[in-house]
């Protein structure tokens, strides 16, 4: 789809990146000025800036792994825009999958039409919009009470968030097992998909063990994207061995 790599899409994405950088820079400069007024030294402030930047390097590179997967659908610039603004790969990919697979019955690996890609983009834009409305409209009034509200229900909130994800996960795990329908053939259960599912699960468990045993905390940011991309690579291997 040529439009994904056209100059005007790059311009829109460039403006959004510039906006985010501008907001960050303005907030940084003003917060720095206030920090000096509050008695922080230049050394403390500079250390905070550099250590936050260094701290962010590893997780940022981990995001690039997800960028490769999302680029297949949206091209690198729109995928970068989605991952560089509100959202994360654990939101963007399921949202795109809900449209491409759930609505259109297509695979990410298929040749997608502009309608599919654009519909997915609209869904992703509105699918995570609440903070962008709640914060400007209610944050100032509720600022003091937010902590109380969170503390009151924090246990149930945590369970509810896990349950929401588990609902989605259970549907897609079931979907992996669903007989695949190919025109002119008998439906078949995809051993390839099951192997990839299991491989991905095993990989992240291995990463978990490595993190615990060797105290490799740095692996925490990479465990999910690495498991996903490694399992995708294994799919190529299994497919080349004739598994379907």
């Amino acid at each position: 789809m040529a439009f994904l790599n056209s100059w005007w899409v790059y311009t829109i994405v460039g403006i959004i990146f510039a906006y985010v950088l501008l907001q960050s820079a303005i907030f940084l400069i003003k917060a720095r000025k206030k920090a000096l007024e509050l008695g922080f030294s230049n050394k403390q402030i500079n250390k905070t800036i550099t250590s936050s930047m260094i701290f962010s390097l590893a997780p940022s590179f981990a995001i690039l792994i997800g960028l490769v997967a999302l680029s297949k659908i949206f091209g690198p610039m729109l995928a970068g825009m989605r991952l560089g603004t509100l959202g994360a790969v654990t939101y963007e990919l399921p949202a795109a999958i809900n449209v491409i697979n759930g609505v259109y019955g297509m695979n990410i690996g298929d040749v997608l039409t502009p309608e599919m890609v654009i519909t997915a983009l609209w869904v992703m834009t509105f699918g995570c919009i609440p903070p962008l409305l709640i914060i400007p409209l209610f944050f100032k009034k509720m600022r003091g009470r937010m902590e109380q509200i969170n503390d009151k229900d924090s246990s149930w909130n945590s369970i509810m968030m896990d349950a929401l994800f588990l609902g989605m996960i259970s549907a897609f795990v079931g979907y992996v097992l669903a007989p695949k329908v190919v025109e002119g053939e008998e439906p078949y259960i995809s051993l390839l998909a099951i192997l990839v599912l299991v491989s991905s699960a095993v990989l992240i468990m291995v990463f978990g063990i490595l993190m615990k045993k060797f105290k490799w905390d740095w692996l925490k940011n990479y465990a999910l994207p690495l498991s996903m991309i490694s399992a995708m690579a294994l799919a190529i291997l299994f497919a080349s061995l004739g598994v379907r």
Partner: peptide
């Protein structure tokens, strides 16, 4: 196989 890779 992004779906099984992600959801696994």
């Amino acid at each position: 196989n992004i779906i099984p890779a992600l959801f696994g």
